[in-house]
């Protein structure tokens, strides 16, 4: 058996504005279990970056520990990458972002990585507004360590061996909303038609964007009694809306009756068109989003779609008032103004 993906590609495969095909955004062949939802998310990230014409070398992908956190090896082989320690992706990413604000930052994590060991890191990344897309590949278990319940596992859901989870779950979407994230949504690995545009819009958002993506673990959490299985998520998926991203260059031609579509213009001028499916809260209204989520969740439904966005949000750099030039490009003279200036500053503080 070969584990190498043949380099031959479909001759009809389209190229993007940079002349790359989708396959140029791939990484190494995955070593995850066959059928793992995480692999589908990787494919969605590849598709989104291809469609956005992102130069792969302008993107940095960072992760923690877990099957989900392994996935950056399997996409964007030509991008920067850092596989950090368990639950510590947010702080490493924050540092990287501070040093070079010009890259596009993608943080990839798991429910264990973010909701268990890394919960503190997670909430602070949200409240600081680090300009990034934070994706949690949520399967309700610690996949890599053989399927223990994670902190997002629903109360009452059953493990593969039949054990019942006694604890209440942490809902990362609610938490992100509460912590001040400025782009919040949820997707499902088994619905790329919704997931790819969500990732595209989130990558274009300026500020912190959070996506909770349900991603069934075929090996440890895809059985009857699980609330994170392919079947369960499909049956309980309450689609709030289906986004569609239009680059600002293109004229917007509405292909459905006016009024039906909600349009959001992002910071960079690109437009997200939202096709509402179930529910009608205003996506600019954080409280309404939280209410909608709480109501549907109480009914046992899993709300997916773009739930909240603040297109005018700022980010960590705005709050810190850093210079426009990335810090890693400042020279010694710019970084160290000299003894005289230091003396002046010190004098002012006396």
């Amino acid at each position: 058996m070969t584990y190498l993906k043949p380099h031959f590609r479909n001759p009809a495969l389209p190229s993007n504005a940079l002349g790359y095909t989708r396959r140029d955004y791939e990484g190494a062949v995955s070593t995850l279990c066959a059928g793992c939802g995480h692999d589908s998310i990787s494919a969605a990230i590849v598709q989104a970056c291809f469609e956005l014409d992102l130069p792969p070398h302008r993107l940095a992908k960072l992760s923690g520990i877990g099957c989900s956190s392994k996935t950056p090896t399997y996409f964007l082989g030509a991008s920067h990458g850092f596989n950090s320690v368990h639950g510590r992706m947010p702080s490493v990413l924050t540092g990287a972002n501070l040093a070079n604000r010009d890259l596009v930052y993608l943080g990839v994590s798991g429910d264990g990585d973010s909701a268990s060991i890394g919960l503190g890191q997670f909430v602070h990344a949200m409240r600081r507004g680090v300009n990034m897309l934070y994706i949690v590949e949520n399967n309700g278990v610690y996949g890599l360590t053989k399927g223990q319940f994670s902190a997002t596992a629903d109360k009452g859901s059953k493990s593969k061996k039949g054990a019942v989870n006694p604890d209440d779950p942490i809902d990362l979407v609610s938490l992100a909303l509460q912590m001040g994230a400025t782009f919040v949504g949820r997707g499902f690995s088994g619905d790329k038609a919704q997931l790819v545009p969500l990732i595209k819009a989130a990558l274009r958002h300026r500020g912190v964007a959070f996506l909770d993506v349900l991603s069934p673990c075929v090996t440890f959490n895809n059985h009857p009694g699980s609330t994170k299985s392919y079947d369960y998520v499909r049956e309980h998926n309450a689609v709030f809306n289906r986004p569609d991203v239009v680059p600002h260059r293109e004229a917007i031609t509405a292909d459905s009756a006016p009024g039906e579509l909600v349009t959001v213009t992002l910071h960079d001028g690109s437009v997200v068109r939202l096709r509402p499916v179930a529910g009608d809260h205003d996506v600019h209204d954080r409280i309404a989003a939280m209410n909608h989520l709480a109501e549907r969740q109480a009914e046992g439904e899993i709300v997916t779609g773009l739930l909240y966005v603040d297109p005018d949000a700022g980010d960590l750099h705005d709050r810190l008032n850093t210079v426009d030039t990335p810090l890693n490009r400042l020279n010694d003279a710019e970084l160290c103004p000299g003894a005289a200036t230091l003396a002046r500053v010190n004098a002012a503080l006396r």
Partner: peptide
């Protein structure tokens, strides 16, 4: 089970 794994891996789409 419609997991998309085959679609994602297929080198020639």
């Amino acid at each position: 089970i419609e997991c998309d794994a085959c679609l994602d891996i297929c080198p020639v789409d």
